[in-house]
Amino acid sequence: MIKILVMEGDFDAGEEIKALAALGGGAVANFVGQVRGGGKLAALELEHYPAMTEKALRKIADKAAEKWTLHGITIIHRVGQLQVGEQIVLAATCSDHRQAAIEACSYIMDQLKTVAPFWKKEIRLDGSENWVEERQSDVDAATSWND
């Protein structure tokens, strides 16, 4: 089972993890990302092209399912304007074994940071704005999974 959602509203990470656990197996791994503060950040605005984004997320999930034996994958990514501390992303995997679940979840997050077509704009407390550029460390993490 693969579940992909791109949405403006919040999600209940606990319910999503519970749904994956119900698929069986012995391991559920997850990552919940939040809009981090600091640097006088007020909000983060995420834009995307819906058809392109959902297709890219599905491709990431399908690749994870090819690499690891999984019972399920959930990827939820929010878009729109999000305040500091709000949830932005959930990546969760379910497998019979801990290592597969953890590695697949980590792989998904590394790919989301570089491959998924989201454009992020930081909005600062003083009203200034800037688009977030790709970081080399994110690119390196994503390419480290290449066969």
Results as ranks from 00 to 15, higher is better:
E66R: 09
M52L: 15
T114S: 11
G24N: 06
Q111A: 09
V89S: 10
D147C: 09
M52D: 09
K40M: 10
K40A: 14
V84R: 03
K121P: 01
A141F: 05
M1F: 07
W68P: 00
A141I: 05
V28M: 01
A142D: 14
I2L: 13
C94I: 00
K18L: 15
E134M: 05
I123H: 03
A22C: 07
D140L: 10
A142H: 11
A29Y: 01
F11S: 11
V139R: 05
D12Y: 02
L90A: 12
L5K: 14
L5E: 15
W145F: 08
E103W: 01
H71N: 13
V79C: 09
F11P: 10
A92S: 04
Q111W: 08
I75S: 04
D10E: 15
E129G: 02
A51C: 06
G26F: 08
R36E: 05
E47R: 11
G14S: 14
D110M: 06
E47V: 06
K113S: 04
D147I: 12
H71D: 03
N30S: 15
V35Q: 05
I17W: 06
C94S: 07
D110C: 08
R98H: 08
G33V: 04
C94V: 07
V89E: 12
A21W: 12
A116I: 02
Y49E: 07
L112G: 07
I88M: 10
A43T: 11
G37T: 08
I4Y: 09
A91E: 09
E45F: 09
G39Q: 08
V89A: 09
K67T: 04
F31C: 12
D96A: 13
W131Q: 04
R135D: 05
A141C: 05
N130H: 15
